[in-house]
Simulated assay, not measured.
Amino acid sequence: MAKVKKDPNEMHFLDHLEVLRWHLIRSTLAVVIIGCVAFLMKTFIFDVVLLGPTQMSFPTYRLFCNIATSFGIDSAFCADKLPFTIQSRLMSGQFSAHIWTSIWAGFIVGFPYVLYELWKFISPGLHENERKHSRGFILIASLLFFMGVLFGYYVVAPLSINFLGTYQVSASVLNEFDLGSYISTVRASVIACGILFELPILIYFLTKVGLVTPEIMKKYRKIALVIVLILSAVITPPDVASQIIVAVPVLILYQVSIYISKMVIKRQEKREKNKVKTG
């Protein structure tokens, strides 16, 4: 019985794991290196970026104050300062916060490179046409992520901080927040929005594999609206205005995703027609 010759380019499962391991190592190294740079930029990272939304001079507060003033409305955004303090209650609290914040900063800034390593792992398994039509993946996905990060930092985070920082059940209870709690609020707002803004990319790949179609997305639009409102309620303070501010861009992204899904389906149908003609 003749032996079947193996393709020399064919990789076994363990070979794929080895390749994946090196992609993960390079991604981790990139995050750590950028994190080390962020660690040395302590003053800028904490005083300017992280603690920026605690100051009433923050651009978001000034914008909402000007809007409220133009309508003759008294607003908490026009206050002189936020009525809370941030403190560290643990011996290693500030040092731990410094390290973890640097790591997360490394991940956010190094996100395009992490995507690049992911793409290098996935792309060999794609057909030439699929690679050709996915050339802008890293650029578009990175832009969407950074747009989400900026939206989370300039909209969601300050709204959450302003609401939760001024909320009191009694005048006798002072708001003195732990440093870790404050940082986690800002981090959750930023990372959550960055991931939410990747919705068009997710829909693109789900459409490519046949799990999503424009018809399905249109059919379940109302359910998607409810899910978006729930997500908005999770990552924003419990007031209607904040939820609407967050929900609007996500709904716009949902509509864009429907258009992207249509484009993918049209390309696939066109490719099938060309195959029939050439066949």
Rank of each mutant, 00 (worst) to 15 (best):
187 R>Q: 10
147 M>C: 13
155 V>L: 14
218 K>S: 08
174 L>V: 15
129 N>A: 13
137 F>N: 08
178 D>A: 08
190 V>Q: 01
134 S>Y: 11
185 T>E: 10
141 A>T: 15
220 Y>W: 14
133 H>V: 11
162 N>Y: 08
143 L>G: 12
184 S>T: 14
149 V>D: 05
128 E>A: 11
142 S>G: 06
172 S>Y: 00
123 S>R: 14
194 G>F: 00
210 G>I: 06
195 I>N: 02
156 V>N: 04
216 I>C: 04
217 M>E: 05
129 N>K: 12
211 L>A: 13
189 S>H: 03
180 G>N: 12
202 L>W: 08
130 E>I: 12
161 I>L: 05
173 V>R: 11
206 L>C: 06
161 I>T: 09
221 R>S: 15
126 L>N: 07
223 I>F: 08
130 E>S: 05
167 Y>S: 15
187 R>W: 04
125 G>T: 09
182 Y>I: 14
153 Y>H: 08
141 A>G: 02
188 A>C: 02
227 I>K: 04
160 S>K: 07
191 I>M: 00
137 F>I: 12
168 Q>M: 12
219 K>M: 06
138 I>A: 10
179 L>M: 13
227 I>F: 00
133 H>P: 01
227 I>P: 00
213 T>D: 07
118 L>H: 02
164 L>K: 00
152 G>I: 10
208 K>Q: 09
173 V>M: 12
155 V>S: 10
118 L>S: 13
125 G>P: 05
219 K>I: 03
219 K>T: 11
126 L>K: 11
213 T>P: 08
206 L>Y: 00
131 R>T: 06
145 F>L: 02
157 A>E: 01
191 I>V: 12
123 S>W: 03
154 Y>D: 04
202 L>M: 13
213 T>S: 15
165 G>E: 10
222 K>L: 09
187 R>Y: 01
201 I>T: 13
155 V>F: 11
215 E>Q: 15
